[in-house]
Design a protein around this nucleic acid. Structure first.
Lengths: 342, 342
DNA sequence: CGCGGTTCTTTAAACGATTCAAGAGCAAGA
DNA sequence: TCTTGCTCTTGAATCGTTTAAAGAACCGCG
């Protein structure tokens, strides 16, 4: 039982013990091929014996680069972001990079100060799921010097990975159109959110493509995209039905929580899903598959989004001088058909 | 539009521009009180003008300490862990620390190599939610040199924050005992998981305290603690009931997914919850409140767990030389009564 | 024996901050 | 005028690596 921590051994101690110079120790670690096999073996055994742990902060200082990248998300407890984080963590492991996690908590000020922290740490780059689409703010972030890859937001001036929400909206609408007809309604979040606008555009595009008038699409806009709000909209539909208007044959929600609320609101009042009304969600969170009536929903490649972002960042860092064209990789969502809208 | 990154300015550049020594610049940043007000103002304005961003790797090298801590979790997409991560991130922000996120993916090998990476980065410390309770492995981690605080696991040799699962189990059982009587059953996960054992002990303790025989507690053990598994157990209960045995008046599940599965399995076959059978979950994840029949469940202070762990780690780091007794803070869970077991 | 060519190793200068002992002013007291 | 004490500033060493350039050892060949 050793009470006091053993004095940290450095490259120099290893060198002394092995009877070589520090340069040789450094080389056996970083370019083993240029050191004689015998020397290499001796050095490695000393490293082992002394429990030498290289100090990467010193290396970073010298080389000017770091094996750390930042990940800034609005809320790590949101399953969408934590799936992304998982993809990022896995890709970072593969590339032997460390990930500095920053939870911006939907606060632009915090987000900025976290980017500043990353710059001070001389992180090799950062992945950001930006809170707002404010282009000026993004430019500001970029000017901090660290390489930046945006996630879930297209950047006109830089790299990004995102999901084609227009395609997702179209996919969902097409499904309802082909299985139910054209009298479905859209339950959407705030139009201040780019993703909500895109999903709506996709739905409208599907109508146009079918020769219908997109402006005929009935839309309910909620401020909070929660299960509660979904139940509320369901009640609206039901009271309208009592007043004589027919129930829609389908409901397209722009997230899964809303869809679950809609289903609950409807079924509690005796409306059967999917027989009377089909419901489609968006996101494919765990709750979609686990719901009482498993949810038909648009699946988003969240993990892939995070994974690809790391690779893109690495490419950007590598190509720093050797020229590198910024790129955007857009993932296509797909429809997962379950019971709520077969 | 500047194509090439501006050459990074260092302390020296600032010093030159302000007509002072690097020592003075360093001091205005770190001990502003010892530099004359006029000088301080001048230096700060130059810092501002040149966009000087201090290089913390250099500082770390010199001082031997880092403003980075590690967080190692088995799976960041698990809501239990992501809530902890949120607490950690918030506390770290308060302490001006960066968090290196490591997703061990339930792989002990990966967990160890991540701890090694943290040691190489000279992280000030690490918070670990260990995969297994293997004491030998934990000791190994500790020997890597970085300070360690365990989360959700009590450490006999070091700091930790954990939740009193025995108390949680007792709480849940007491509730069923007092509202329903003593004929409830326990649906539990594998006995290889310490938390499952503890929750079971708590339930048994509640029986004993009520003057009942704990061995009479009927227990169903499932291998996967999923909604599916819950549905399966519900079916078992129903077939037993058909065979003449009465349904239990209550079901105590050791996590929320199981409870939701039980409820689904029962209600689908016409058994009403909570009228015929009351169901209690454990964990208070988002799905508990959002369920069709909102779940009565044991709430765990996940966020607080993470937040406290950071503070404990900071205390341990500070007290390195000034003496510091390892401590364990144990949080008490509480019961959230909702519709599934009023 | 001298020479160029390999192959390996070392010397020593960085990287960018922190920090301590010492120096520079300056005001007040002797 | 000389000290003393005080406040502020500075010179220079230092942290632990990396890396270019120089050096050493050896081999074979003319």
């Amino acid at each position: 039982m050793e009470r006091n921590p053993p004095p940290r051994v450095g490259l120099a101690a290893v060198a002394r013990e092995a009877g070589v110079s520090t340069a040789t120790v450094s080389n056996t670690l970083n370019r083993p091929e240029i050191v004689a096999a015998a020397t290499r073996a001796r050095v490695l055994s000393v490293i082992e014996r002394l429990d030498f742990v290289p100090n990467t902060t010193a290396a970073s200082l010298r080389t000017g680069t770091n094996r750390l990248i930042g990940l800034v998300v609005p809320d790590i407890t949101n399953p969408f972001y934590s799936e992304i984080a998982k993809g990022v963590a896995a890709a970072a492991d593969e590339q032997r990079l460390g990930v500095i996690l920053c939870n911006s908590q939907d606060d632009p000020v915090r987000e900025l100060s976290q980017l500043e922290m990353l710059a001070e740490q001389r992180a090799a780059g950062a992945l950001v799921v930006p809170i707002t689409a404010d282009a000026k703010r993004l430019a500001r972030l970029r000017s901090l010097g660290t390489h930046l890859v945006l996630i879930d937001r297209e950047a006109d001036d830089g790299c990004s990975t995102s999901i084609d929400d227009v395609a997702g909206g179209r996919l969902a609408a097409q499904h309802l159109l082909s299985t139910r007809g054209d009298d479905f309604v859209l339950v959407n979040g705030s139009h201040a959110i780019p993703q909500c606008i895109d999903r709506r555009s996709g739905a409208r595009a599907a109508l146009s493509a079918a020769g219908l008038e997109p402006d005929d699409l009935v839309e309910y806009e909620v401020t909070e995209m929660t299960t509660e709000a979904g139940v509320g909209v369901a009640r609206l539909l039901l009271t309208a039905a009592e007043a004589g208007a027919p129930l829609p044959s389908g409901v397209l929600c722009t997230n899964d929580q809303l869809a679950i609320g809609i289903i609950r609101g409807l079924t509690q009042h005796g409306v059967s899903v999917p027989e009377q009304v089909a419901v489609v969600g968006y996101g494919d969170l765990a709750i979609a598959a686990d719901a009482p009536i498993p949810l038909t929903t648009v699946e988003q490649p969240k993990y892939a989004l995070g994974h690809a972002a790391v690779e893109m960042l690495v490419a950007e860092i590598r190509g720093e001088q050797s020229g590198h064209r910024h790129s955007t990789s857009v993932f296509r969502p797909s429809l997962v058909v379950r019971d709520s809208a077969p």
